[in-house]
Design a protein around this nucleic acid. Structure first.
Lengths: 226, 226
DNA sequence: CCAAAAGTGTTAGTGATACACCCATGT
DNA sequence: ACATGGGTGTATCACTAACACTTTTGG
Protein backbone atom coordinates (compact mmCIF):
# COMPACT_ATOMS: atom_id res chain seq x y z
CA UNK A 1 0.00 0.00 0.00
CA UNK A 2 2.99 2.29 0.29
CA UNK A 3 3.81 2.96 -3.34
CA UNK A 4 0.46 4.44 -4.41
CA UNK A 5 0.00 8.04 -5.47
CA UNK A 6 -1.77 10.38 -3.13
CA UNK A 7 -3.75 13.50 -3.84
CA UNK A 8 -5.05 16.66 -2.33
CA UNK A 9 -8.75 16.58 -1.73
CA UNK A 10 -10.75 19.76 -1.54
CA UNK A 11 -14.35 20.40 -0.67
CA UNK A 12 -16.28 23.33 -2.06
CA UNK A 13 -19.55 24.72 -0.82
CA UNK A 14 -22.17 25.87 -3.26
CA UNK A 15 -24.37 27.76 -0.86
CA UNK A 16 -27.64 29.12 -2.17
CA UNK A 17 -29.94 31.59 -0.57
CA UNK A 18 -32.77 33.81 -1.66
CA UNK A 19 -32.50 37.49 -0.95
CA UNK A 20 -33.72 40.64 -2.63
CA UNK A 21 -35.80 38.50 -4.95
CA UNK A 22 -32.73 36.82 -6.34
CA UNK A 23 -31.23 33.39 -6.15
CA UNK A 24 -27.84 34.08 -4.70
CA UNK A 25 -24.70 32.12 -4.17
CA UNK A 26 -21.89 32.63 -1.72
CA UNK A 27 -18.48 33.49 -3.09
CA UNK A 28 -15.26 34.54 -1.48
CA UNK A 29 -12.47 36.51 -2.98
CA UNK A 30 -9.23 34.57 -3.06
CA UNK A 31 -6.47 36.10 -0.96
CA UNK A 32 -3.63 34.06 -2.42
CA UNK A 33 -2.37 32.76 -5.71
CA UNK A 34 -3.52 31.19 -7.88
CA UNK A 35 -6.46 33.34 -8.91
CA UNK A 36 -5.64 35.90 -6.22
CA UNK A 37 -8.39 38.47 -6.08
CA UNK A 38 -10.71 36.35 -8.20
CA UNK A 39 -13.96 35.02 -6.81
CA UNK A 40 -14.31 31.40 -5.86
CA UNK A 41 -16.50 29.02 -3.95
CA UNK A 42 -15.76 28.79 -0.24
CA UNK A 43 -13.95 25.60 0.56
CA UNK A 44 -10.71 24.08 1.57
CA UNK A 45 -8.60 21.00 1.85
CA UNK A 46 -9.56 17.82 3.61
CA UNK A 47 -7.48 17.03 6.66
CA UNK A 48 -6.37 13.58 7.71
CA UNK A 49 -8.53 13.31 10.78
CA UNK A 50 -11.58 14.95 9.28
CA UNK A 51 -14.74 13.61 7.71
CA UNK A 52 -15.64 15.26 4.41
CA UNK A 53 -18.68 16.93 5.91
CA UNK A 54 -16.66 18.32 8.76
CA UNK A 55 -14.27 19.99 6.36
CA UNK A 56 -16.98 21.81 4.51
CA UNK A 57 -18.66 22.78 7.77
CA UNK A 58 -15.40 24.09 9.13
CA UNK A 59 -14.64 26.13 6.04
CA UNK A 60 -18.11 27.58 5.79
CA UNK A 61 -17.83 28.65 9.36
CA UNK A 62 -14.36 30.12 8.99
CA UNK A 63 -14.97 31.87 5.73
CA UNK A 64 -18.57 32.92 6.01
CA UNK A 65 -19.68 32.42 9.59
CA UNK A 66 -22.28 29.89 8.52
CA UNK A 67 -23.31 27.06 10.82
CA UNK A 68 -25.95 24.34 10.88
CA UNK A 69 -26.64 24.18 7.23
CA UNK A 70 -28.17 21.55 5.01
CA UNK A 71 -25.52 19.87 2.88
CA UNK A 72 -25.70 17.50 -0.04
CA UNK A 73 -22.66 15.87 -1.55
CA UNK A 74 -22.37 16.06 -5.31
CA UNK A 75 -20.10 14.21 -7.67
CA UNK A 76 -16.44 15.15 -7.62
CA UNK A 77 -14.45 17.13 -10.14
CA UNK A 78 -10.95 15.92 -10.74
CA UNK A 79 -9.63 16.76 -14.19
CA UNK A 80 -5.90 17.10 -14.36
CA UNK A 81 -5.55 20.74 -15.29
CA UNK A 82 -8.25 22.13 -13.01
CA UNK A 83 -5.88 23.54 -10.39
CA UNK A 84 -2.68 25.14 -11.67
CA UNK A 85 -0.86 24.22 -8.46
CA UNK A 86 -1.20 20.54 -9.08
CA UNK A 87 -3.66 17.73 -8.97
CA UNK A 88 -6.63 18.40 -6.73
CA UNK A 89 -9.85 16.43 -6.61
CA UNK A 90 -12.68 18.54 -5.31
CA UNK A 91 -15.95 17.42 -3.84
CA UNK A 92 -18.74 19.98 -4.08
CA UNK A 93 -21.44 20.26 -1.47
CA UNK A 94 -24.69 21.91 -2.36
CA UNK A 95 -26.14 23.87 0.52
CA UNK A 96 -29.17 25.94 1.21
CA UNK A 97 -29.73 28.53 3.83
CA UNK A 98 -32.53 30.83 4.76
CA UNK A 99 -31.51 34.42 4.27
CA UNK A 100 -32.74 35.40 7.69
CA UNK A 101 -30.27 33.06 9.32
CA UNK A 102 -27.57 34.95 7.57
CA UNK A 103 -25.07 37.26 9.00
CA UNK A 104 -22.13 36.77 6.77
CA UNK A 105 -19.45 38.68 8.47
CA UNK A 106 -16.33 37.12 7.15
CA UNK A 107 -14.21 36.14 10.10
CA UNK A 108 -10.51 36.16 10.84
CA UNK A 109 -8.71 35.73 7.55
CA UNK A 110 -11.11 38.27 6.15
CA UNK A 111 -11.44 36.82 2.75
CA UNK A 112 -14.24 39.05 1.62
CA UNK A 113 -17.29 36.83 1.34
CA UNK A 114 -20.34 38.00 -0.48
CA UNK A 115 -23.53 36.99 -2.17
CA UNK A 116 -23.96 37.06 -5.92
CA UNK A 117 -26.96 36.55 -8.11
CA UNK A 118 -26.49 33.24 -9.92
CA UNK A 119 -27.39 34.90 -13.19
CA UNK A 120 -24.72 37.57 -12.84
CA UNK A 121 -21.65 35.87 -11.57
CA UNK A 122 -18.24 37.49 -11.67
CA UNK A 123 -15.28 35.75 -13.18
CA UNK A 124 -14.59 32.58 -11.24
CA UNK A 125 -11.49 30.67 -10.24
CA UNK A 126 -10.76 27.07 -11.27
CA UNK A 127 -13.71 25.20 -12.74
CA UNK A 128 -16.08 26.74 -10.22
CA UNK A 129 -18.44 27.94 -12.90
CA UNK A 130 -19.01 24.39 -14.01
CA UNK A 131 -19.50 23.26 -10.43
CA UNK A 132 -22.07 25.96 -9.85
CA UNK A 133 -24.00 25.02 -12.96
CA UNK A 134 -24.10 21.43 -11.89
CA UNK A 135 -25.32 22.46 -8.46
CA UNK A 136 -27.98 24.70 -9.87
CA UNK A 137 -29.43 21.87 -11.91
CA UNK A 138 -29.34 19.77 -8.83
CA UNK A 139 -31.06 22.42 -6.76
CA UNK A 140 -33.85 22.80 -9.29
CA UNK A 141 -34.37 19.12 -9.40
CA UNK A 142 -34.36 18.69 -5.64
CA UNK A 143 -36.72 21.52 -5.00
CA UNK A 144 -39.28 19.83 -7.21
CA UNK A 145 -38.88 16.33 -5.89
CA UNK A 146 -38.26 16.89 -2.19
CA UNK A 147 -39.46 19.22 0.51
CA UNK A 148 -36.08 20.91 0.46
CA UNK A 149 -37.58 24.36 0.21
CA UNK A 150 -38.07 24.36 3.97
CA UNK A 151 -34.41 25.25 4.19
CA UNK A 152 -35.03 28.55 2.53
CA UNK A 153 -37.90 29.93 4.55
CA UNK A 154 -38.33 30.85 8.14
CA UNK A 155 -40.53 28.82 10.40
CA UNK A 156 -43.73 30.60 9.44
CA UNK A 157 -44.34 32.03 6.01
CA UNK A 158 -47.08 33.01 3.66
CA UNK A 159 -47.88 30.97 0.60
CA UNK A 160 -46.97 33.92 -1.54
CA UNK A 161 -43.51 33.97 -0.04
CA UNK A 162 -43.12 30.27 -0.71
CA UNK A 163 -44.31 30.67 -4.26
CA UNK A 164 -41.81 33.42 -4.83
CA UNK A 165 -39.04 31.19 -3.57
CA UNK A 166 -39.98 28.54 -6.10
CA UNK A 167 -40.29 31.09 -8.86
CA UNK A 168 -36.87 32.45 -8.15
CA UNK A 169 -35.21 29.06 -8.03
CA UNK A 170 -36.92 27.74 -11.13
CA UNK A 171 -36.72 31.08 -12.84
CA UNK A 172 -40.30 30.96 -14.03
CA UNK A 173 -43.69 32.31 -13.11
CA UNK A 174 -46.11 29.95 -11.43
CA UNK A 175 -49.88 30.05 -11.23
CA UNK A 176 -51.11 31.03 -7.79
CA UNK A 177 -54.15 28.80 -7.61
CA UNK A 178 -52.45 25.75 -9.03
CA UNK A 179 -49.43 26.23 -6.83
CA UNK A 180 -51.55 26.25 -3.70
CA UNK A 181 -53.67 23.32 -4.74
CA UNK A 182 -50.57 21.30 -5.48
CA UNK A 183 -48.79 22.12 -2.25
CA UNK A 184 -51.76 21.21 -0.15
CA UNK A 185 -52.36 18.05 -2.16
CA UNK A 186 -48.75 17.04 -1.61
CA UNK A 187 -49.23 17.75 2.05
CA UNK A 188 -45.95 19.45 2.61
CA UNK A 189 -47.31 22.54 4.33
CA UNK A 190 -50.04 23.16 6.84
CA UNK A 191 -51.77 26.35 7.89
CA UNK A 192 -51.36 27.96 11.25
CA UNK A 193 -53.77 30.25 13.05
CA UNK A 194 -51.46 33.20 12.67
CA UNK A 195 -51.55 35.98 10.16
CA UNK A 196 -49.05 38.33 8.69
CA UNK A 197 -50.43 41.84 8.62
CA UNK A 198 -48.51 44.48 6.81
CA UNK A 199 -49.49 47.10 4.34
CA UNK A 200 -52.92 48.15 3.21
CA UNK A 201 -54.39 44.84 2.31
CA UNK A 202 -55.86 41.65 3.62
CA UNK A 203 -53.55 39.83 6.06
CA UNK A 204 -51.97 36.65 4.79
CA UNK A 205 -52.34 33.38 6.62
CA UNK A 206 -49.08 31.91 7.84
CA UNK A 207 -48.11 28.34 7.04
CA UNK A 208 -45.41 25.97 8.25
CA UNK A 209 -43.83 22.89 6.77
CA UNK A 210 -45.34 19.72 8.17
CA UNK A 211 -41.94 18.18 8.24
CA UNK A 212 -38.74 20.10 8.70
CA UNK A 213 -36.76 17.09 7.71
CA UNK A 214 -35.42 16.43 4.27
CA UNK A 215 -37.80 14.00 2.60
CA UNK A 216 -38.77 12.81 -0.85
CA UNK A 217 -42.13 13.75 -2.26
CA UNK A 218 -44.17 10.80 -3.38
CA UNK A 219 -42.26 9.21 -6.21
CA UNK A 220 -43.35 11.52 -8.91
CA UNK A 221 -40.15 10.91 -10.73
CA UNK A 222 -41.44 8.35 -13.02
CA UNK A 223 -41.70 7.88 -16.69
CA UNK A 224 -44.32 5.29 -16.07
CA UNK A 225 -44.84 2.51 -18.50
CA UNK A 226 -47.82 1.02 -16.82
CA UNK B 1 0.78 24.25 -0.61
CA UNK B 2 3.30 21.81 0.78
CA UNK B 3 1.91 21.17 4.24
CA UNK B 4 -1.49 19.82 3.25
CA UNK B 5 -2.63 16.27 3.84
CA UNK B 6 -2.90 13.98 0.87
CA UNK B 7 -5.05 10.93 0.33
CA UNK B 8 -5.41 7.80 -1.67
CA UNK B 9 -8.17 8.01 -4.22
CA UNK B 10 -9.86 4.93 -5.51
CA UNK B 11 -12.41 4.41 -8.23
CA UNK B 12 -14.88 1.57 -8.18
CA UNK B 13 -16.97 0.30 -11.05
CA UNK B 14 -20.56 -0.71 -10.48
CA UNK B 15 -21.12 -2.54 -13.73
CA UNK B 16 -24.63 -3.75 -14.46
CA UNK B 17 -25.76 -6.14 -17.10
CA UNK B 18 -28.81 -8.23 -17.79
CA UNK B 19 -28.35 -11.92 -18.29
CA UNK B 20 -30.42 -14.99 -17.61
CA UNK B 21 -33.34 -12.75 -16.80
CA UNK B 22 -31.49 -11.19 -13.92
CA UNK B 23 -29.99 -7.82 -13.19
CA UNK B 24 -26.39 -8.67 -12.53
CA UNK B 25 -23.41 -6.86 -11.22
CA UNK B 26 -19.74 -7.51 -11.72
CA UNK B 27 -17.70 -8.49 -8.69
CA UNK B 28 -14.16 -9.68 -8.27
CA UNK B 29 -12.75 -11.73 -5.49
CA UNK B 30 -10.01 -9.97 -3.62
CA UNK B 31 -6.63 -11.61 -3.84
CA UNK B 32 -4.99 -9.66 -1.04
CA UNK B 33 -5.70 -8.39 2.42
CA UNK B 34 -7.80 -6.75 3.63
CA UNK B 35 -10.90 -8.74 2.82
CA UNK B 36 -8.83 -11.36 1.03
CA UNK B 37 -11.13 -13.83 -0.68
CA UNK B 38 -14.16 -11.61 -0.16
CA UNK B 39 -16.04 -10.17 -3.12
CA UNK B 40 -15.67 -6.53 -4.05
CA UNK B 41 -16.34 -4.08 -6.82
CA UNK B 42 -13.67 -3.93 -9.49
CA UNK B 43 -11.59 -0.81 -9.12
CA UNK B 44 -8.27 0.58 -8.15
CA UNK B 45 -6.24 3.56 -7.18
CA UNK B 46 -5.94 6.75 -9.12
CA UNK B 47 -2.47 7.44 -10.50
CA UNK B 48 -0.85 10.83 -10.72
CA UNK B 49 -0.93 11.15 -14.47
CA UNK B 50 -4.38 9.64 -14.93
CA UNK B 51 -7.82 11.11 -15.36
CA UNK B 52 -10.46 9.55 -13.12
CA UNK B 53 -12.21 7.96 -16.08
CA UNK B 54 -9.00 6.46 -17.33
CA UNK B 55 -8.42 4.75 -14.04
CA UNK B 56 -11.75 3.04 -14.02
CA UNK B 57 -11.40 2.10 -17.68
CA UNK B 58 -7.98 0.64 -17.02
CA UNK B 59 -9.14 -1.38 -14.06
CA UNK B 60 -12.22 -2.70 -15.80
CA UNK B 61 -10.05 -3.82 -18.64
CA UNK B 62 -7.44 -5.41 -16.40
CA UNK B 63 -9.82 -7.09 -14.05
CA UNK B 64 -12.69 -8.01 -16.31
CA UNK B 65 -11.61 -7.54 -19.89
CA UNK B 66 -14.26 -4.88 -20.41
CA UNK B 67 -13.73 -2.04 -22.86
CA UNK B 68 -15.77 0.78 -24.35
CA UNK B 69 -18.36 1.03 -21.66
CA UNK B 70 -20.76 3.75 -20.64
CA UNK B 71 -19.68 5.35 -17.37
CA UNK B 72 -21.37 7.73 -15.02
CA UNK B 73 -19.61 9.27 -12.05
CA UNK B 74 -21.46 9.11 -8.75
CA UNK B 75 -20.82 10.89 -5.52
CA UNK B 76 -17.79 9.82 -3.54
CA UNK B 77 -17.60 7.78 -0.36
CA UNK B 78 -14.98 8.87 2.07
CA UNK B 79 -15.81 8.01 5.68
CA UNK B 80 -12.83 7.53 7.87
CA UNK B 81 -13.19 3.90 8.78
CA UNK B 82 -14.22 2.57 5.40
CA UNK B 83 -10.86 1.04 4.51
CA UNK B 84 -8.95 -0.66 7.32
CA UNK B 85 -5.62 0.14 5.66
CA UNK B 86 -6.10 3.84 6.03
CA UNK B 87 -7.99 6.75 4.62
CA UNK B 88 -9.24 6.18 1.10
CA UNK B 89 -11.78 8.26 -0.75
CA UNK B 90 -13.50 6.25 -3.43
CA UNK B 91 -15.37 7.47 -6.45
CA UNK B 92 -17.92 5.04 -7.81
CA UNK B 93 -18.73 4.86 -11.49
CA UNK B 94 -21.98 3.34 -12.56
CA UNK B 95 -21.66 1.40 -15.80
CA UNK B 96 -23.90 -0.57 -18.08
CA UNK B 97 -23.01 -3.15 -20.61
CA UNK B 98 -24.90 -5.34 -22.98
CA UNK B 99 -24.49 -8.98 -22.06
CA UNK B 100 -23.64 -9.97 -25.59
CA UNK B 101 -20.58 -7.74 -25.54
CA UNK B 102 -19.41 -9.74 -22.61
CA UNK B 103 -16.66 -12.19 -22.44
CA UNK B 104 -15.43 -11.78 -18.96
CA UNK B 105 -12.35 -13.84 -18.88
CA UNK B 106 -10.39 -12.43 -16.00
CA UNK B 107 -6.96 -11.52 -17.27
CA UNK B 108 -3.47 -11.66 -15.84
CA UNK B 109 -3.76 -11.27 -12.10
CA UNK B 110 -6.62 -13.70 -12.28
CA UNK B 111 -8.75 -12.14 -9.64
CA UNK B 112 -11.78 -14.26 -10.30
CA UNK B 113 -14.38 -11.94 -11.74
CA UNK B 114 -17.98 -12.94 -11.95
CA UNK B 115 -21.53 -11.79 -12.30
CA UNK B 116 -23.97 -11.80 -9.42
CA UNK B 117 -27.65 -11.13 -9.24
CA UNK B 118 -28.13 -7.83 -7.43
CA UNK B 119 -30.74 -9.42 -5.23
CA UNK B 120 -28.46 -12.22 -4.09
CA UNK B 121 -25.13 -10.63 -3.41
CA UNK B 122 -22.42 -12.39 -1.47
CA UNK B 123 -20.69 -10.76 1.46
CA UNK B 124 -18.93 -7.65 0.26
CA UNK B 125 -15.73 -5.88 1.19
CA UNK B 126 -15.51 -2.30 2.48
CA UNK B 127 -18.73 -0.29 2.09
CA UNK B 128 -19.36 -1.74 -1.33
CA UNK B 129 -22.87 -2.83 -0.42
CA UNK B 130 -23.81 0.76 0.24
CA UNK B 131 -22.20 1.87 -3.00
CA UNK B 132 -24.12 -0.74 -4.95
CA UNK B 133 -27.41 0.31 -3.40
CA UNK B 134 -26.76 3.89 -4.31
CA UNK B 135 -25.91 2.89 -7.86
CA UNK B 136 -29.00 0.77 -8.19
CA UNK B 137 -31.21 3.68 -7.24
CA UNK B 138 -29.35 5.74 -9.73
CA UNK B 139 -29.74 3.15 -12.44
CA UNK B 140 -33.48 2.91 -11.90
CA UNK B 141 -33.83 6.62 -12.03
CA UNK B 142 -31.70 7.01 -15.15
CA UNK B 143 -33.43 4.26 -17.03
CA UNK B 144 -36.72 6.09 -16.61
CA UNK B 145 -35.50 9.54 -17.45
CA UNK B 146 -32.95 8.92 -20.18
CA UNK B 147 -32.54 6.61 -23.13
CA UNK B 148 -29.82 4.78 -21.23
CA UNK B 149 -31.37 1.39 -21.91
CA UNK B 150 -29.68 1.38 -25.30
CA UNK B 151 -26.55 0.33 -23.46
CA UNK B 152 -28.12 -2.93 -22.46
CA UNK B 153 -29.42 -4.21 -25.76
CA UNK B 154 -27.80 -5.15 -29.01
CA UNK B 155 -28.32 -3.05 -32.09
CA UNK B 156 -31.60 -4.67 -33.07
CA UNK B 157 -34.05 -6.04 -30.57
CA UNK B 158 -37.68 -6.87 -30.16
CA UNK B 159 -39.95 -4.75 -28.03
CA UNK B 160 -40.52 -7.73 -25.79
CA UNK B 161 -36.80 -7.94 -25.11
CA UNK B 162 -36.71 -4.25 -24.30
CA UNK B 163 -39.68 -4.56 -22.02
CA UNK B 164 -38.04 -7.41 -20.18
CA UNK B 165 -34.95 -5.30 -19.66
CA UNK B 166 -37.05 -2.59 -18.05
CA UNK B 167 -38.93 -5.09 -15.95
CA UNK B 168 -35.75 -6.62 -14.67
CA UNK B 169 -34.17 -3.30 -13.79
CA UNK B 170 -37.26 -1.87 -12.16
CA UNK B 171 -38.18 -5.20 -10.66
CA UNK B 172 -41.80 -4.90 -11.64
CA UNK B 173 -44.15 -6.13 -14.31
CA UNK B 174 -45.13 -3.67 -17.03
CA UNK B 175 -48.14 -3.62 -19.29
CA UNK B 176 -47.29 -4.59 -22.84
CA UNK B 177 -49.63 -2.25 -24.67
CA UNK B 178 -48.89 0.76 -22.49
CA UNK B 179 -45.19 0.12 -22.65
CA UNK B 180 -45.20 0.13 -26.43
CA UNK B 181 -47.40 3.17 -26.74
CA UNK B 182 -45.16 5.06 -24.37
CA UNK B 183 -41.91 4.15 -26.06
CA UNK B 184 -43.18 5.16 -29.44
CA UNK B 185 -44.67 8.36 -28.08
CA UNK B 186 -41.32 9.23 -26.50
CA UNK B 187 -39.73 8.49 -29.83
CA UNK B 188 -36.76 6.63 -28.46
CA UNK B 189 -37.06 3.59 -30.71
CA UNK B 190 -37.97 3.04 -34.33
CA UNK B 191 -38.94 -0.08 -36.19
CA UNK B 192 -36.79 -1.77 -38.79
CA UNK B 193 -37.91 -3.97 -41.65
CA UNK B 194 -36.34 -7.01 -40.07
CA UNK B 195 -37.92 -9.74 -38.07
CA UNK B 196 -36.75 -12.17 -35.53
CA UNK B 197 -38.09 -15.61 -36.23
CA UNK B 198 -37.58 -18.29 -33.69
CA UNK B 199 -39.84 -20.87 -32.21
CA UNK B 200 -43.32 -21.79 -33.17
CA UNK B 201 -44.95 -18.38 -33.13
CA UNK B 202 -45.34 -15.16 -35.01
CA UNK B 203 -42.02 -13.45 -35.78
CA UNK B 204 -41.28 -10.30 -33.82
CA UNK B 205 -40.43 -7.06 -35.54
CA UNK B 206 -36.98 -5.75 -34.73
CA UNK B 207 -36.46 -2.20 -33.48
CA UNK B 208 -33.44 0.04 -32.98
CA UNK B 209 -32.83 3.06 -30.81
CA UNK B 210 -33.16 6.27 -32.78
CA UNK B 211 -30.25 7.67 -30.90
CA UNK B 212 -27.41 5.62 -29.54
CA UNK B 213 -26.20 8.55 -27.58
CA UNK B 214 -26.98 9.20 -23.95
CA UNK B 215 -29.78 11.73 -23.86
CA UNK B 216 -32.44 13.01 -21.51
CA UNK B 217 -36.07 12.24 -22.20
CA UNK B 218 -38.26 15.29 -22.38
CA UNK B 219 -38.20 16.81 -18.95
CA UNK B 220 -40.73 14.57 -17.38
CA UNK B 221 -39.10 15.11 -14.07
CA UNK B 222 -41.35 17.74 -12.88
CA UNK B 223 -43.57 18.32 -9.95
CA UNK B 224 -45.34 20.98 -11.86
CA UNK B 225 -47.00 23.86 -10.08
CA UNK B 226 -48.32 25.50 -13.13
C1' DC C 1 -55.08 -27.80 -35.51
C1' DC C 2 -52.55 -26.62 -31.53
C1' DA C 3 -49.26 -24.04 -28.80
C1' DA C 4 -46.75 -19.94 -28.19
C1' DA C 5 -45.51 -15.34 -28.40
C1' DA C 6 -46.62 -10.99 -31.24
C1' DG C 7 -49.40 -7.43 -31.90
C1' DT C 8 -53.15 -4.08 -31.31
C1' DG C 9 -57.57 0.03 -29.17
C1' DT C 10 -60.78 1.73 -26.08
C1' DT C 11 -62.46 3.49 -21.86
C1' DA C 12 -62.38 5.51 -17.31
C1' DG C 13 -59.99 8.05 -14.20
C1' DT C 14 -56.66 11.17 -12.54
C1' DG C 15 -53.82 15.02 -12.65
C1' DA C 16 -52.28 19.38 -15.26
C1' DT C 17 -53.37 23.78 -17.05
C1' DA C 18 -55.68 27.91 -17.89
C1' DC C 19 -58.24 31.47 -16.26
C1' DA C 20 -61.01 35.99 -13.30
C1' DC C 21 -63.27 37.62 -9.60
C1' DC C 22 -64.28 38.78 -4.60
C1' DC C 23 -62.10 39.64 0.16
C1' DA C 24 -59.95 42.05 4.00
C1' DT C 25 -57.22 45.59 5.23
C1' DG C 26 -54.81 50.50 5.93
C1' DT C 27 -54.82 54.97 4.50
C1' DA D 1 -63.62 54.79 -1.45
C1' DC D 2 -59.60 53.09 -3.25
C1' DA D 3 -55.41 50.65 -3.72
C1' DT D 4 -53.07 46.52 -2.48
C1' DG D 5 -52.06 41.91 -2.15
C1' DG D 6 -54.82 37.57 -0.28
C1' DG D 7 -57.66 34.09 -1.37
C1' DT D 8 -60.71 30.86 -4.05
C1' DG D 9 -63.33 27.17 -8.15
C1' DT D 10 -64.29 25.31 -12.55
C1' DA D 11 -63.78 23.51 -17.17
C1' DT D 12 -60.80 21.52 -20.50
C1' DC D 13 -57.22 18.78 -21.84
C1' DA D 14 -53.60 15.35 -21.66
C1' DC D 15 -51.71 11.55 -19.75
C1' DT D 16 -52.09 7.22 -17.04
C1' DA D 17 -53.98 2.75 -16.12
C1' DA D 18 -56.61 -1.13 -16.79
C1' DC D 19 -57.98 -4.58 -19.66
C1' DA D 20 -58.65 -9.22 -23.83
C1' DC D 21 -58.71 -10.77 -28.19
C1' DT D 22 -56.75 -11.70 -32.93
C1' DT D 23 -52.55 -12.80 -35.75
C1' DT D 24 -48.72 -15.41 -37.37
C1' DT D 25 -45.86 -18.90 -37.21
C1' DG D 26 -43.59 -23.95 -36.49
C1' DG D 27 -44.39 -28.37 -35.41
Amino acid sequence: MGEKDTFLIAVDGVVFTIAHHELQILLIQRDAEPFKGIHALPGGFLRKEEELEDTIKRKLYEEANIKDIFLKKLHPFGKKGRDPRGRVITIPYMALISSDKLEVKPRAKATAAGWFCVYHLPELAFDHKEIIEDSLHHLRFEVQSTNLAYQLLSDKFTLTELQQAYEIILNQKLDKRNFRKRLLALGIVKSTTHYKREGAHRPAQLYTFKDRQYSMLKEKINISFS
